[in-house]
Design a protein around this nucleic acid. Structure first.
Lengths: 207, 207, 207, 207
DNA sequence: CATGAATGAGATTTCATTCAT
DNA sequence: AATGAATGAAATCTCATTCAT
């Protein structure tokens, strides 16, 4: 089985490198990270990285794409949201988003890297929009329309910008990025967020 | 007038450098920015930068501190909020925050740099918290308590985390950072944000 | 043989660099020597030096230590001096010292560098004292005492400062340093030196 | 008298700079010394140095020449040595040399600088030979011949290399340079030196 | 005479990338 | 596949020198 396990080790090598790259890049940023550090973290030498990746830029891009892949697979599909009330769907969508952010070790840091490198890696931002932000916005728009149509939400709900509803999540992430340890607990914030959104869409009026 | 102009040039030099530094740092990030580029932007040589700043690190830190100074001067003071309803104060605080973000050429980018460099320039993050975020949170907390006490807000309002109320602003900034040009217009978003907050604090109940 | 030659080249590289460093440092002094020059002398590029040495300072220190090592190995040991007359031992010690100075290509120049950099590389001076000067002084002291005890030397000999006996050697080196080509021939000077020392320790009195 | 004192200050300026230059150059060596440091020591700015000296090189050379001038003035002239015994002249010459070395604050350090910069400032070494070492050697040669002629010294004395007689002084300086604080007291060493030289020239024979 | 801002050449050091083994 | 020695381009920083005031 040595042959098999050796093959397995080789198979795992690129992933190991990507994970080490993630750690180093998120610690120091793209430019300040040295390939030496990444290699050392994996326990190989610099040259080995070039066996698997064309160059530093490719390594970075691949890392972002590869490590944010799982999230894309668990994206809310519109179909999943059917068969329940719009409110329930809303709650599920937000809860799912927080789950991912709080539990996935990569999402926050990758978002941070995208923010940091927005001018240098614009294609990654576009990817983020197309594969990640876009579908969520679409799902949210669908829910708002459905809720309004069924009278579950107030008449104004259909006109709400989906981004307004999602923005607290991003705000939460940012606070946690800039001032780690000073943001409110994730679960508490989620509860507040859901409560706020419920009030927002509810069929009540304000002065 | 030659004498005056030389003295004036000398007086203005540090500020010129800081502004050029801002442009370059926010374009490429701290590590990838070359002092050569900053110097070229000012129209001087590398050496001149070292006449005014000890090194690259100091230049960066000074730039962040200096260019975010105006904002600190326009911070909402608690006293200003007195003499008006809690709702009006809330609206004023949020409007003020948006004004600043939409009009100040620096704030968004500096926040982005803080996010990007959170591991490398932690002291700047602390500064941001103490001088910027802290006071706003305190003012907001005050407003919530006052509004609840006077019955203007619902009983639940006092317990709302101020950060929940502010988070959409940060979310807005982030979206604009990662996907420039895709965020909703600032004024429209502000209106939506204010409406949402009004509904949040209003004395109504939701299922 | 290719494998062998590459390994050999690698093995020899540090020593090559140290020798080139010696040439350049002794030509221009520590501060005025450029790593470029050292690299060019070896036939590699600047970067290669950093593969083997941490920085310029380390290179200098290592060079001094490494190239003065052979001398330490040929130091007079006290045991060698036994089994012969004190006078013979004295002559042997002095002759050995001249041999080394006249034949070793490094000693004079390294001493010169130590003199030049005494404020910048004090630890090297201490090394020189402990490993080099100290043992010779000790051996000389031993000889003086033995010669006095056996009556071979005059009674005053035991009180002679060993440094007085050795100082002409240092003086010779210095003259040769400052005015190369103007110092007397080494062999002639050694003969004169030995003669002077013999007269110094002899059991005669002077007015 | 303000005018006069101001003029005096101006007159003194070059000398002040030379002395500051001496301090800094002997602390760090030629290449590592910054004109800024010298200027700061005088209490002026870098530019002022250029008012009085053409460049760094000239400043260094002028400093060495100027600060070793007093010594040249007190050089032993052959005439002074006449009218006393050869032995007395010998003692006077050596004592004078030690006096100068022990008391003059510059001589040792300047010699050190000459040693350090022998390849870069060869003209200074030549100056040293012509103005300083040369005359002393000549005087010494004269004394040896005279002492031999009068029978005061042994017959072998005329053939002694003057440098052998002087070398302990240089050796003493070197030891004090490399290992400051470890050399014997100057007065004791002088006494030993004189005693050794007396024995050397005395009309005795050794086995 | 004195200043000190500005220069620009050059020095050390770093590091992504290559390639022979 | 993996290594690691070597490269060379580039980045930060220094400092002697100039010159307008």
């Amino acid at each position: 089985m040595t042959k098999g396990s050796r093959a397995a080790a080789k198979q795992a090598r690129p992933r190991e490198i990507l994970e080490a790259a993630f750690e180093e890049f998120s610690l120091r940023g793209y430019a300040a990270t040295r390939l030496d550090d990444i290699a050392a973290r994996v326990g190989v030498t610099k040259g080995t990285i070039y066996v698997y990746f064309e160059n530093k830029e490719t390594l970075f891009e691949t890392m972002v794409i590869e490590l944010s892949q799982p999230k894309l697979d668990t994206q809310p599909s519109l179909s999943v949201l059917q068969g329940q009330s719009a409110t329930a769907a809303l709650v599920q969508l937000l809860s799912g988003a927080y789950d991912e952010i709080l539990e996935d070790p990569y999402s926050r840091e990758i978002l941070r890297l995208l923010i940091a490198e927005k001018n240098t890696f614009q294609s990654l931002s576009r990817r983020f929009r197309d594969n990640f932000a876009g579908p969520i916005f679409a799902a949210l728009r669908e829910i708002l329309q459905k809720g309004t149509a069924t009278g579950e939400f107030g008449a104004h709900a259909a006109a709400i910008d989906p981004f307004l509803i999602l923005s607290p999540i991003l705000g939460y992430i940012v606070l946690d990025m800039v001032l780690p340890g000073e943001s409110p607990a994730g679960a508490a914030f989620l509860a507040g967020h859901i409560d706020m959104v419920k009030r927002l869409v509810a069929a009540t009026t304000v002065p």
